[in-house]
Design a protein around this nucleic acid. Structure first.
Length: 274
DNA sequence: CCCGTGCCCTGGCGGC
DNA sequence: TGCCGCCAGGGCACGG
């Protein structure tokens, strides 16, 4: 459940479950999950720290461990489960944090998720966080105009570039462009100021609304705790190939842009001569 | 620097 | 049933 609203929902749920608890021990079952530091340093350094807070930047979860920060990216299918201490480790559980009275288990079928452990004073200065652009609520027209002015890629592709705007993924990119009346194939440096303003306003609006609805749940995940959102009922184009546009009844089209499925209304989104 | 491609992984689904 | 190709909400490393 990877985009910003889903990660924010996970953050809030996690915070309720594990805030103030201490990491007594850790078991790592899939070493590649840990991108930095090396696995032995990670296991040694993370023990005996208290979870002081859980923050988020873009799609990254940030566990504030006082002098360290643990970064966790869920990628496509990562999720957290809360288990009794000593509960059987199931398939697809790749790390277990043993806390005071429970185990926090990270489960990820496709093993795409990654974790980093940094000293707190350098976490924002190092990749991945140092490379992130602004969250939707921090955007302004001048910032985006500067980032867009030399981009010759389709706007759909650029909306997914986390170094420009962080937090938008494939679902919300389609929804934002639909609301903005912008064709996903439109070349980014050809967008008008008005179109950029619309994209900013709709990015904020759609992500805020999605957070309020606890995110979007499309594929039925097997009982992931606390993360079944309702925003899928509000989707206007994503996953609606060949269904009538909710505004104009034209059939929604699905195309590939940058190898990602892209859904749009050819009538509402003809901002372009493509 | 910009951009395109391949790759990392596993499982569900539809078609034959 | 079995097999096969396609699909999945992401992002990195590597080329030209």
């Amino acid at each position: 459940m990877p985009e910003l609203p889903e990660v924010e929902t996970v953050r809030r749920t996690l915070k309720n479950k594990v805030l103030g608890k201490t990491i007594k021990d850790v078991n790592v079952f899939y070493d590649n999950l840990i991108s930095y530091p090396d696995i032995n340093t990670f296991k040694k350094e993370i023990i005996n720290h208290r979870i002081k807070d859980i923050l988020r930047l873009g799609k990254w979860l940030i566990f504030d461990l006082d002098d360290y920060c643990l970064l966790s990216h869920l990628r496509m299918e990562g999720k957290y489960f809360y288990k009794n201490i000593g509960a059987d480790v199931t398939k697809h559980e790749h790390i277990s944090f043993i806390l005071d009275d429970m185990e926090l288990r990270y489960n990820d079928t496709r093993k795409f998720g990654r974790m980093y452990l940094y000293a707190k004073d350098e976490v924002y200065e190092k990749p991945p966080l140092s490379k992130l652009g602004k969250e939707p609520w921090d955007l302004n027209v001048n910032y985006l105009k500067e980032k867009f002015c030399n981009k010759k890629l389709p706007i759909k592709t650029v909306l997914l570039d986390q170094s420009i705007i962080t937090g938008i993924g494939n679902i919300y990119a389609d929804e934002i462009l639909f609301k903005s009346g912008v064709n996903p194939l439109k070349i980014t440096n050809e967008l008008s100021d008005k179109e950029i303003e619309n994209i900013i306003a709709n990015s904020k609006m759609i992500l805020e609304e999605a957070i309020n609805m606890k995110g979007t749940t499309i594929r039925s995940y097997t009982s992931s705790e606390g993360v079944s959102g309702l925003f899928q009922n509000n989707l206007l184009v994503h996953k609606r190939e060949n269904l009538p546009c909710k505004i104009c009844n034209t059939k929604i089209k699905r195309i590939k842009i940058g190898d990602r499925s892209t859904y749009f209304c050819p009538r509402c989104q003809q901002s372009n001569n493509v």
